[in-house]
Amino acid sequence: MSRIGSAFREAEGPLFIGYTVAGDPDPAASVRIAGTLLDAGADILEMGVPFSDPVADGPVIQRAGIRALRAGTTPAGVFRMVREIREVTDKPIVLLTYYNPVYRRGLSWFYSEAAAAGVDGILVVDLPLEEANHARECAQENGLDQILLAAPTTGDARLARIVDAASGFLYLVSRTGVTGAREDLPEDLRGLIGRVKARGSVPVAVGFGISRPAHVRACAAAGADAVIVGSGIVGLVERHLADPPALQEAICAYIRQMKGAVRAR
């Protein structure tokens, strides 16, 4: 049983997945931020591998990626950060990446290095099911979960194939559009989660646009097994770039608030 599988099995309510861009604003600070997320109660850590052309990301995560790249972050550097974080936590660590950094260094290299560093699952944003065969093989060979995306636009036939192929959890994109905080969640979230649940038992983690306790409550009420919060956290990093203690405090307060909403189901 993978760490991710165990985490969902043992969960008493929806899990909280905290996202941060690896290397933002620099490698050392990034490791500290990841530690803060975990200490503050994130159940799963999701780290984004920075990429020069992140077409699925909104402005907040785009800027974080630029900061991380300017600080010299590379895939090898990300794995070094994961090693450091792995020394202090047993919680699952998931990498979220675009395909080109994986392809360029080679899938075998990327997946085996990730596994060796202590990564538990990999999600490649721009690698849909039809292109993901090799990645899924590499994941399997290295004992990693290959996490797949589903979206509101995914039709029933493809959704069934994606649910069938997903391992670890299914990353359900709550709405069309790029990452980033939104005012409201889509109204038909319950129906969307229901469509996935009707096709298999893989845990469903809902992401994109979730930044407030009310969103977390809505996801939990709609049947989500986990919520993923990205831009909300990355935005705090950006706001407190010059003041690490204030950042730590802000992240802790934010996660307490969001976790409180998860438990309040």
């Binding site: 944003v125 721009d126 849909p128 292109e131 797949l148 636009t153 039709g155 559009g177």
Partner: peptide, 21 residues
């Protein structure tokens, strides 16, 4: 992934799931 999506080894569809359908 049918042949008309590929030119030799090149081409394909590497996009976020939201655009696939």
């Amino acid at each position: 992934t049918g042949s008309k999506a590929r030119y030799g080894r090149f081409g394909g569809r590497y996009v976020p799931e939201t655009l696939m359908e």
